[in-house]
Each structure stands twice: as C-alpha cells, then as structure tokens.
C-alpha cells in the first residue's frame, strides 16, 4: 500500500511535497481502482463461464427446459423423477464401483512404487519417467493402446493363441457387459497410478531422515519401516490422494466416453456421461441440470468429509 502511494506520488506530486489528506484519499482510491482493473479480466471470464452458469444451473434444476425455449418452472418434479430414475442410479452405482477400484489398485501400486523408488539410488530417475509417461499421454491415445492390446484378434489374445493358450479367445473386453466397466477402469488406472507414485515419492522425501535412522537402529525391517515411518509421515498426502480419487471417480468421463460410451446396454455408463447425454442428445437440459446438481452436491459431501479428516489429522 505505502509503496503504491509512493509510486503514484512520483508521477503526480513533486518530490518532497507532502500530500494533503484529501489528496491522499484520492490517491488511495485511484490505487484501488487500478487494482480492480487488474482483477477485472479474470473475474469477467470466470463469471461468464463458471459463476453465472453455476447459478443458472441451480435455477434450471427446478424447471422443464430444452435449452432453447423459455424454461417452465416445475418445482421439485425433476428431483422426484431423479429419485425413481433407474438409469441414473445404474450410472451412479458404476461410479462407486469405479471409486472402490481406484481406492485399492492405484493406491497400492502408487505406494509400492514410491516406497521402492525411495530406497534405491541408481536408476530412480529413469523409473520415475517410465511410470509417469502414461499419465502424460493423451487419454484418446491411451485408449487406443489398450484397444489394440485387448483386441481379441490382433492383441495379447492372438499372441497367447499362437502359444497354444486359448484363455482370451473371443473375450471382448469392451463389448462384454460383464467386463466393460472393469476394463475401462483398468485402462484408466494404468494411466493414473504413475501420478500417485510421483506424488507419494515427493511426500516420502520430505520425511525427516532421522526418523528412518531411528527405525533402523531399532532393527526395523522394510515392512515395519513402511508401516511406522513412511505411512504416518505422508498422511496429509494420502488424504489429498483420497480426495482427488473420490472426486475423480465421481466425475469420471474420458475413458468411459472413449472406450465404450457407457455401453453395452448401459453396463459401463457413468453419471457424467448420462448428464451430457440427457442435456445434449435428449435435450432435457432442465433435468440434466438436476442430475448435475445432485452429482455436485455428492462431490461437496466428499470434500467436506475429507476436510474433516484432514483437520482431525492436523489436530493430532
């Protein structure tokens, strides 16, 4: 503040002159106007894209609206419909399966990968790059890689067949309604876990070296060291990882969209796909807003839950 005043006075007031109180007030106002002007572009873009549509989304969730004509207020009709909508609950159920998968496989792989990386010296940088590449690649390419590998005629199945193993003959990973959801989650996991390695590794490197030494003097083996030094040491990062996994699983869109589009017969449908289909294909924008709002509220519940978890940790 004082420095801004100083700079303004360099321009407008002769050096050494003491500004009178009203003049100081005007300068202060000018400084504030400049500051507001600096924030204006960011604020305008945000209100246009995020703030405004968020508020109207809440309003539209109580209307019957096709996106073009004037919305018609219908009270709680959309919410009542949502409660009895099997398509929605089917999709949301898949989000929770997705969540369970992501809370286990990538978490375990990320923790193991990071712990092993923290224990070696030579080659650590190389492994880190290898693990990270799938996270870096574009989702459409990752999907293409696994469409190729899991192709019943031109993928792993045909290599096994050449070796006389017929386990994967006629297994259509993305077209079988019992496998589609898990196959999609698998590809998404393959893309994601390397990010957790990098995240956990950074946290593990922040643990005080004396704690490791103390554990070693006590004769701890690798598992005990992991259990009693590493896990407690990276707890805030674990909570952070759980948060982004929970939100990510609730809102997942990319891999189901690319690989199965929710099919076959809704067996890999997820909530975000359904929201966009309802809004942009069926043109039921009002009802889609209701779905989206329900989804966002659930996401909010997750955020609050993990926030409480984090606070409790900080208190300990």
């Amino acid at each position: 503040m004082t420095q801004l005043l100083a700079s303004a006075s360099v321009e407008s007031v002769a050096p050494g002159a003491v500004p009178t109180p009203p003049r100081r007030g005007r300068l202060r106002r000018r400084g504030r106007l400049i500051a507001i002007a600096f924030v204006l572009p960011a604020l305008a873009v945000n209100l246009l894209v995020i703030g405004g549509p968020t508020v109207s989304s809440i309003i539209y969730s109580f209307t019957d609206w096709n996106g073009i004509t004037v919305p018609e207020f219908v009270g709680l009709d959309n919410w009542v419909r949502l409660l009895g909508d099997d398509t929605f609950w089917n999709a949301l159920g898949h989000n929770f399966i997705y969540l369970l998968i992501f809370l286990t496989a990538p978490m375990a792989m990320g923790l193991v990968g990071a712990f092993m990386l923290s224990r070696i010296r030579r080659g650590a940088a190389l492994f880190r790059v290898l693990f990270f590449i799938p996270y870096l690649l574009v989702s459409v390419i990752n999907a293409q890689i696994w469409r190729n590998l899991l192709d019943p005629e031109l993928g792993i199945a045909s290599v096994l067949r050449g070796m006389g193993i017929h386990w994967l003959d006629d297994v259509y990973f993305f077209a079988d309604k019992d496998l589609a959801l898990y196959s999609v989650a698998f590809v998404d996991n393959w893309h994601f876990w390397g990010f957790l390695v990098v995240l956990f590794l950074a946290a593990m490197q922040g643990i005080d070296a004396s704690q490791y030494e103390a554990a070693r003097i006590d004769g701890a083996n690798a598992w005990q060291e992991f259990r009693h030094v590493v896990l407690p040491g990276i707890r805030p990062t674990l909570t952070f990882a759980l948060t982004i996994i929970a939100i990510g699983a609730l809102l997942v869109y990319d891999y189901p969209f690319i690989l199965t589009a929710g099919g076959p017969a809704g067996s890999s449908d997820v909530a975000s796909l359904l929201v966009n289909r309802t809004a942009f294909v069926s043109r039921e924008a009002g009802y889609a807003s209701t779905m989206a709002l329900a989804l966002s509220l659930l996401g909010g519940v997750f955020l609050i839950f993990f926030n409480i978890l984090r606070r409790r940790e900080e208190e300990n």
Binding site: I50, P53, S57, G67
Partner: peptide, 15 residues
C-alpha cells in the same frame, strides 16, 4: 471455484 465440478455449469454454459 476451484472445487466446483465442471458438471455444475456445463449444461447452461453449452446453451
């Protein structure tokens, strides 16, 4: 704003 999911505003934004 950071914690808002895109689903919260994508429908009205499209139209």
């Amino acid at each position: 704003i950071i914690s808002l999911p895109v689903q919260m505003f994508i429908v009205p934004l499209f139209f």
